[in-house]
Simulated assay, not measured.
Amino acid sequence: MNDKNIELLTNAFANALDIDKNQVNNELKYQGIPQWDSITHMFLINELESTFQIEIDADDVLEMNSFVRVKEVLEKYNLSFEKQN
């Protein structure tokens, strides 16, 4: 399930920010690329909510300022993104 979640998360980022999936990695940060600005951030939140069937709290939206941080915040919603051995 975790590999599936990573794939879903990567696709959500790529779709919302209109970037190639190869650009989605742990180095990706809010305003780190021109495509991730305040407007597309809201598209991203919408895409994440639709993809994972959750409603993200406004405080969490503000914390989601990098790919890594998004994964950490989404763990509050019982989603896991780390590979299990």
Rank of each mutant, 00 (worst) to 15 (best):
M1P: 07
M1I: 05
M1W: 06
N2A: 04
N2Q: 07
D3L: 03
D3G: 00
K4S: 09
K4F: 12
I6L: 03
I6K: 03
I6T: 02
E7S: 13
L8F: 10
L9R: 00
T10V: 11
N11I: 10
F13G: 09
L17E: 00
D18P: 03
I19Q: 07
I19R: 03
I19A: 05
D20L: 04
D20E: 08
D20Q: 02
K21F: 02
K21A: 08
Q23T: 04
Q23A: 06
V24D: 02
N25A: 14
K29Y: 04
Y30W: 15
Y30Q: 08
Y30A: 08
Q31M: 12
I33K: 04
P34E: 09
Q35K: 04
W36K: 02
W36T: 02
I39Q: 12
I39S: 13
M42Y: 09
M42D: 03
M42W: 01
F43T: 14
L44P: 00
I45S: 10
I45Y: 09
N46G: 15
N46K: 14
N46Y: 12
N46W: 10
E47K: 14
E47Y: 12
L48V: 03
L48K: 03
L48F: 04
E49K: 03
S50N: 15
S50L: 09
S50E: 10
T51G: 06
F52N: 06
Q53W: 07
E55A: 09
I56W: 13
I56S: 10
D57V: 09
D57G: 03
A58G: 07
D59T: 14
V61C: 08
L62A: 10
L62D: 08
E63G: 00
M64E: 07
N65H: 09
N65F: 08
N65W: 03
N65L: 15
S66L: 06
S66C: 05
S66P: 01
S66Y: 05
F67S: 01
V68L: 02
V68P: 00
V70R: 13
V70F: 14
K71F: 04
E72R: 06
V73I: 12
V73N: 00
L74M: 15
E75T: 15
K76T: 05
K76L: 11
Y77E: 00
N78H: 13
L79R: 01
L79T: 02
L79G: 06
S80Y: 14
S80R: 14
F81S: 08
F81C: 05
F81L: 04
F81R: 02
F81M: 05
F81N: 06
K83Q: 11
N85E: 12
N85T: 08
